[in-house]
Design a protein around this nucleic acid. Structure first.
Lengths: 153, 153
DNA sequence: TATTGTTATACTCTATAACTATA
DNA sequence: TATAGTTATAGAGTATAACAATA
């Protein structure tokens, strides 16, 4: 039997023209490009973001880190567990408020955070390079207007 | 104790400037706008896409529908189960190939597919309206270039 | 041997409820 | 009473492995 690849493609109607689809493709491609860089350093995206924020905000409590990353505090626990187990982050219990813990990078964590920032810079440069002069600026502007339009009403 | 909302926001470094974040915001906003329209008609996004494709490709087998939607065939089963249970789709076993089933919309399914296409049209018009003249065209072009750049190498 | 449809399963991300110990 | 951290759990989306019936 001939493989179905040789059959005519189904008519997808309006679906291929949806702006949503172009956004999804762009985001997936961009995310995977960055994901490959993160994976080369052995971290998941949420771990990378946590390390980068902690590198610039030593002693931040988990509740504020979660808010900064747009995560539920409850879902941050496993992320911090993994980072602490690998010796990248320390939870230091505070004396003045014994409920809270100050999240601090170890030396290894700080080194890794620096490498992650370099990867982000290279990632953004690669994307911007494909968009031509002012492309990045124009894209960001259009995306902002799109976000506003979609949320309107 | 004063709520943490009054504390200075943490320094997020390069994270807020990531093009990925702008893409994510735009996609989330667009998807949720469309999701609200789908929910008003009682369907999930994958169900809506399946109905719209089947409306234009009567008798399509599941293996080709899955490929058209970019889904794994295994994950399409539950979607089709739900649509069939609600009397929107029928699996008609073929005589010439008794492994396969022709997926056909019922009358109710075809009516719903038409309504879904109208919602998609309204959705796209709302997004395009927020982007100004040629905005949609320019955004699609930039997203295409971004996708190529991210996938390069 | 390959293909269609299917079940079972697992992983990621996200979300809610409820507990503990502190304040 | 409210907050910080945690556990348990559940949903949606997506992934692989393996099976039965059929080609």
């Amino acid at each position: 039997m001939i493989a179905s690849g040789s059959l005519p493609a189904p008519d997808l109607g309006p679906l291929p023209d949806l702006l949503d689809l172009a956004l999804k493709r762009g985001l997936r491609a961009a995310e995977q490009e960055l994901l490959r860089r993160y994976e080369a350093l052995g971290v998941r995206p949420a771990e990378a973001s946590a390390l980068i924020v902690l590198a610039r905000n030593e002693g931040l409590p988990a509740v504020r880190l979660a808010a900064a990353l747009g995560m539920k505090q409850t879902n941050l626990v496993a992320v911090l567990d993994g980072l602490e187990r690998r010796g990248l982050v320390e939870r230091r219990r505070l004396e003045r408020d014994r409920r809270a813990a100050a999240l601090c990078l170890t030396e290894a964590g700080a080194t890794l955070a620096g490498r992650l920032e370099a990867e982000i810079e290279a990632h953004e440069a690669k994307l911007a390079g494909g968009l031509g002069p002012d492309g990045r600026y124009r894209l960001a502007g259009l995306l902002h207007r799109l976000t506003e339009a979609a949320a309107a009403e």
